[in-house]
């Protein structure tokens, strides 16, 4: 079974430190598998994508940054509010030259500061423009658009542009722009994914975030559980490890068999690590149960001991494919 068959726009959010950008990038690779074209967009001016893919800072221009297994392509675009506003002025008012003069005066900054919602409409609007864009053959220019979005605490406000616009212009182009953005975001063309770690705080924030998204009728996609420690021990062994009841003599014997000496240091290290690991895994299982109760797709990704580099992204992408994402 494939998840979110209709969704073209995949929005990725998560609490700071959960690996939101990493997951968005791996998702862009997974969805590009077998000949698809995806684009990874970032909107917070952090140049996180460039750092992750180890490329120079991205300009406001769509660039190919990676390929996917089976002949897919991953493109990237870093959007900032200023560029998006200039685009918008050009599109609706043919004001590009005046626009750049205004931006030199600090006016663009000023406008988006007075009305923070304006910046969000422009950024989500850019994402929707990319979603709807057609190529010469009238096919979608990109099969999937992956948006590395603001963190969970701000995601509903960021996406719910109609709500944000309520204090702003109630008629005119910016209002119809917001309406057309909403028509994409609040439909099954969009899936909003949340990235979390199996710790109390990020899980709570995820649960709260999902409630808030649902209250605003925004389409929640899946939960990406990042940096888990795959259990090395089964439940019975974990209980023994925590109680300090692992069979020491047997382990010592095994170690001798393996060619190492069962020194007190080694034994002490293995047993204390086993107990630590068991506590951690038990905690993760408890937190995972809280997420499971939501009955949403959960994609579990491991902590990569070697850290996240380009190879790591492909590793995570392969796990996503195996969990029912893209790849058809």
């Amino acid at each position: 079974m494939r998840n979110w068959p209709e969704a073209t726009l995949h929005v990725v959010t998560g609490k700071g430190g959960t690996g939101k950008t990493t997951i968005a990038a791996a998702l862009a690779i997974a969805l590009a598998k077998n000949g698809h074209r995806t684009i990874l967009m970032e909107v917070e001016g952090r140049q996180g994508i460039a750092q992750l893919f180890d490329t120079p800072p991205l300009p406001y221009e769509e660039r190919k940054i990676a390929v996917a297994p089976g002949g897919g392509e991953v493109w990237a675009l870093a959007v900032d509010t200023e560029d998006a506003l200039l685009d918008y002025l050009e599109m609706f008012y043919k004001l590009r030259r005046a626009g750049s003069a205004l931006s030199k005066m600090g006016a663009v900054d000023f406008a988006t500061t007075i009305a923070p919602g304006l910046g969000d409409v422009l950024l989500t609007g850019k994402a929707c423009e990319v979603v709807k864009r057609k190529d010469k053959k009238q096919d979608n220019a990109y099969d999937y658009v992956i948006l590395d979005a603001p963190p969970t605490g701000r995601i509903t406000r960021f996406l719910n542009v109609n709500g944000e616009m309520s204090g702003l212009a109630k008629v005119g182009p910016i209002k119809s722009h917001a309406d057309s953005v909403m028509a994409v975001i609040a439909s099954d063309q969009t899936a909003i994914h949340l990235v979390t770690l199996l710790e109390e705080m990020p899980v709570q924030e995820t649960l709260d975030g999902i409630t808030e998204l649902e209250e605003n009728n925004l389409p929640v996609g899946g939960i990406f559980v990042n940096m888990t420690r795959p259990p090395q021990l089964d439940a019975a062994q974990r209980a023994m490890a925590i109680a300090g009841e692992l069979p020491q003599q047997e382990i010592e014997l095994d170690i001798s068999q393996s060619g190492l000496a069962p020194t007190p240091q080694l034994m002490e290290a293995l047993l204390s690590e086993a107990s630590d690991h068991a506590e951690r895994v038990d905690l993760e299982i408890t937190e995972l149960e809280r997420l499971t109760q939501l009955s949403r797709p959960i994609i579990v990704l491991p902590l990569l001991p070697s850290g996240i580099d380009l190879g790591g992204l492909y590793e995570l992408a392969a796990i996503m494919t195996a969990s029912g994402i893209g790849g058809e």
Partner: peptide, 18 residues
């Protein structure tokens, strides 16, 4: 070595964890 010889799966797991 332990895994290849099919011995001591618990110990092998502990070593891998370490």
């Amino acid at each position: 070595k332990l895994t290849a010889e099919g011995q001591g799966p618990l110990t092998a797991a502990l070593l891998e964890l370490h």
